[in-house]
């Protein structure tokens, strides 16, 4: 098949799966309600697959499509936070992947923590409140642990999808 068509199709399918994973995650009860923002980050599993298969540009495209669709379907008011988190997370993941010093697990751990950091930074900026920065300590712990899980899952999936 034409490579370009294949890539575009792949981005489309991954975007759709990412939206579904976001939705599933939305339905799950909060893990630790004292601190908002703790989540596993399920969509990142497929974003990582895309990052490894077709590179940062394709991963960014799917990530952006997911954010837009989630904002339109459910909650546009937090779009800017999600966007900041996703952008910072993807940038750092792409850079770490480029160094070739980490496996998917390391890449996704950094991605998880950076996603939280991006959101907190925008929240501090928009709400002009530095105090919420203390959330970052807890989010860094949860983001790291979630990143380990997502990295392992992402590596499995990347391996399985290699032949397609």
């Amino acid at each position: 098949m034409n490579n370009r068509v294949k890539r575009i199709t792949f981005i489309g399918v991954i975007s759709a799966v990412a939206v579904i994973l976001s939705y599933i995650e939305m339905l799950l009860p909060p893990i630790y309600s004292a601190v908002p923002g703790i989540k596993v980050g399920l969509p990142n599993i497929v974003i990582i697959v895309l990052l490894y298969k077709y590179g940062a540009g394709s991963a960014a495209a799917a990530s952006f499509i997911r954010l837009i669709i989630m904002a339109l379907l459910f909650n546009p008011s937090t779009f800017i936070y999600s966007l900041a988190g996703a952008a910072l997370s993807l940038t750092v993941m792409a850079l770490l992947k480029k160094t070739d010093k980490f496996s998917t697990v390391g890449v996704s751990v950094a991605g998880g923590v950076m996603h939280n950091l991006g959101q907190i930074l925008v929240a501090m900026l928009l709400l002009e409140t530095a105090e919420i920065g203390y959330y970052m300590f807890i989010l860094a712990i949860s983001g790291t642990l979630a990143g380990v899980f997502i990295g392992i899952a992402g590596a499995f999936l990347t391996e399985r999808l290699k032949k397609y």
Binding site: K101, F102, V105, G106, V109, A110, V113, F137, I138, I141
Partner: peptide, 25 residues
């Protein structure tokens, strides 16, 4: 193998820094 070592170092450093920050707070 060295990739896995780097992964573990990265994860451990992040966790330690976060726990230390949290305890301090």
């Amino acid at each position: 193998m060295s990739k896995r070592r780097n992964d573990i170092i990265l994860t451990a450093v992040l966790l330690l820094a976060a726990v230390a920050g949290l305890l301090l707070f």
